[in-house]
Amino acid sequence: MNIFRLLGDICHLVAIIVLLLKIWKTRSCAGISGKSQILFALVYTTRYVDLFFTYVSLYNSVMKVIFLASSYATLYLIYVKFKATYDFNHDTFRIEFLLIPCVILSLLITHDYSPVELLWTFSIYLEAVAILPQLFMVSKTGEAETITSHYLFALGAYRALYIVNWIYRYYTESFIDGIAVVAGIIQTILYADFFYLYITKVLKGKDFKLPA
């Protein structure tokens, strides 16, 4: 563990809590892509299958449980409890166009072909693109609630910090995992224009609106 990875995990936790609180407090999931949340739940489910038979540390197990529980709780709030506020007209990204390539790619490029490893590789590739339905929805509505933009910023910052963690580990432990690094860079790049808008608008107190 290093400070960059710890900060990254904290950003990740903050993002998930902010989203849950936003939906719970406003009793609305307007502007939130349920499809992205489905993909995130799938990412954690496929990545943390080893939760039940591989103990790494208390921190590791606790965080995995929190990520799994909160992602399914978010799905419940979106698709059951506050279903009436789900904006399905704007949440139209075809997630099969993400799922199928990730399955194919995880069969082509993976560290090895054990079931757990294949699921892990699939979850890494899927996480890289899981935010696309959400970014697509924001581009369609042309705006996002400020709290939603904080959620997206924290979520983008988490993987950006993981990249710093991988650079740090490369130089201190000569450890590098090409699959995670390449997917993590792609994932962070997808947030690039969002980061720009967030920093130039939201941090200046303006609403998060895409240039018309």
Partner: peptide
């Protein structure tokens, strides 16, 4: 070494 990913990363 590169050949395995680190299981302790979330």
């Amino acid at each position: 070494h590169d050949h395995d990913h680190d299981h302790d990363e979330l």
